[in-house]
């Protein structure tokens, strides 16, 4: 018999067999990392206290800003209208410096990693919660950064930045966080 036939037969069987074993181990859901990160951001916002006087009315918006593009940014759009305490989330992608001052929370896409430090120098940081997704985010001066650990999504909190800001994280949030001191001591 032609070896080609034998081997292609083996491949076909392998494909089918693999298909079946996959089905038996049918996944509960296929976790989409981006929507998981978006959910984390929503939850982190819920456990963050902005300084007194940030909002004058209870139904004023929480402005969630995004900088850069990416699948997390697309997922964040779905949070629009959801409430943090009583504040509905409004999404914004600022392009000018003045617009950033209205942001309560800023997610910066990892594609913009070269701009982290530039942004942190530019922005009023005291009451802005910055969230990133890159190994260099914390050392560049970011506040919260996603990290995968043992197949789970975790997040680091830059303690130096947190202390020097006017934001407060609830103790529940701190329990879940990986607390890190910013290396290099910028700021």
């Amino acid at each position: 018999m032609n070896p080609l036939k034998i081997v292609s037969g083996i491949f076909t069987v392998a494909f089918i067999w693999l298909g079946m074993t996959e089905l038996q181990a049918a996944p509960k859901s296929s976790p989409q990392l981006a929507s998981l990160k978006s959910a984390y951001i929503y939850n982190i916002a819920k456990f963050t206290r902005w300084p007194e006087g940030t909002w004058h009315r209870n139904d004023e918006s929480l402005i969630l800003c995004v900088y850069g593009r990416g699948d997390v940014v697309s997922e964040l759009k779905k949070l629009e209208g959801k409430l943090v305490d009583s504040h509905p989330i409004v999404l914004n992608s600022p392009t000018e410096q003045a617009e950033f001052s209205k942001c309560h929370l800023l997610y910066i896409s990892p594609q913009e990693r070269k701009r982290f430090r530039y942004l942190f120098d530019l922005l009023p940081m005291r009451s802005l919660l910055t969230i990133g997704d890159d190994p260099s985010f914390i050392s560049s001066g970011g506040m919260v950064n996603f990290k995968q650990l043992n197949k789970r999504l975790r997040f680091e909190v830059n303690m130096d930045q947190l202390r020097s800001s006017d934001l407060t994280f609830s103790s529940n949030l701190m329990k879940l966080a990986i607390q890190v001191e910013q290396q290099g001591g910028r700021r």
Binding site: P27, P31, Q32, S35, L36, S38, N43, F47, R152, L153
Partner: peptide
């Protein structure tokens, strides 16, 4: 049949922490 998607934003932090992520 495999495109089941759950809405993570409705989940609590504790639940989120349990979600296993494959490095896509």
């Amino acid at each position: 049949e495999k495109a089941l998607q759950s809405d993570f934003s409705e989940m609590s932090f504790d639940e989120l922490m349990q979600v296993e992520v494959t490095s896509v």
